[in-house]
């Protein structure tokens, strides 16, 4: 089922981002790396603040990148679906 683009994804409160030798990872409270973040994924992670809808993220990404909106929409949704699949985001209540 496609992700609802009005959803406002929220990072799990017990996770943080750690950087080592220029590489970023989402880590748990023990520092165990859970997910490697490239630059784009890191930017997406930063805006998963529970207050920003997926539509807002796509709109802002459209102002940064020249890619067509359907491509950006697919990329953003894929990225957030991956965060959900890895258990990195709070489940929607």
């Amino acid at each position: 089922m496609p992700l609802d683009s009005t959803r406002k994804p929220l990072r799990r409160h017990d996770l943080s981002v750690s950087e080592s030798e220029g590489v970023f990872h989402v880590v748990d409270q023990s520092g165990t790396p859970l997910f490697r973040l490239n630059d784009t994924a890191r930017a997406l992670w930063d805006v998963c603040d529970g207050e920003t809808s997926i539509d807002e993220i796509i709109s802002a990404a459209g102002q940064l990148f020249a890619a067509p909106t359907p491509v950006l929409r697919a990329d953003v949704i894929q990225g957030i679906e991956e965060f959900y699949a890895m258990g990195l985001l709070e489940a929607e209540r």
Binding site: D39, T40, R42, A43, L44, W45, D46, V47, T52, E56, I57, S59, A60, A61, Q63, L64
Partner: peptide, 11 residues
């Protein structure tokens, strides 16, 4: 390093 901040500013 500016991408995340830029996205937030735009939002």
């Amino acid at each position: 390093g500016l991408l995340g901040g830029l996205l937030q500013r735009l939002i």
